[in-house]
Write a protein that binds this DNA or RNA. Structure first.
Lengths: 69, 69
DNA sequence: ATATAATGTCAAATATATTTTACATTATAT
DNA sequence: ATATAATGTAAAATATATTTGACATTATAT
């Protein structure tokens, strides 16, 4: 599976480490890392929680890739 | 948790039974029913599969309620 | 070069999504 | 009233997400 670069990018834009984001949501760092790495199928509630912290929507972070940026 | 009426509605708009939708995706009828009923936290891949069959996006079906229709 | 924060990854344990089987209820038609 | 399709729900089994703990690697700073 492909990496989730939009998540990585949105997180970086807010200057949050994987640990920071994980803490804000209440999951472990490994979970965030795995999602960004792409070998993962997170729950929708987790995705929504991530989006809220990052100020994005599901489509922006988890919907199909547009190909580029 | 609240019911997912947008899913129910989008499915009805395509004249698909819960069984039809489940078959199209490759899950069981109970899974679809549970998601519509609201006591569930499906995986993002499942949500995406549902959206594709219904011709909708994640935001349209699974993002925050707008309150009304 | 050394120290520290951030990231990548792995194996075992735990929590939870999803399946399977089954039955009750509601709608629609004859 | 009877039959049939669709839906709501539940308990046990299975698959998989998530945690925990641990170690290696990469970036950033001193």
């Amino acid at each position: 599976m492909g990496k989730n670069l939009r998540l990585k990018s949105a997180r970086a834009a807010r200057d949050l480490s994987q640990q920071d984001l994980a803490d804000a949501i209440g999951v472990t760092r490994q979970t965030i890392n795995a999602i960004e790495s792409g070998n993962y199928n997170p729950s929708i509630n987790l995705c929504i929680a991530i989006c809220k912290v990052l100020g994005q929507t599901l489509d922006q972070v988890f919907w199909e890739d547009n190909g580029d940026a």
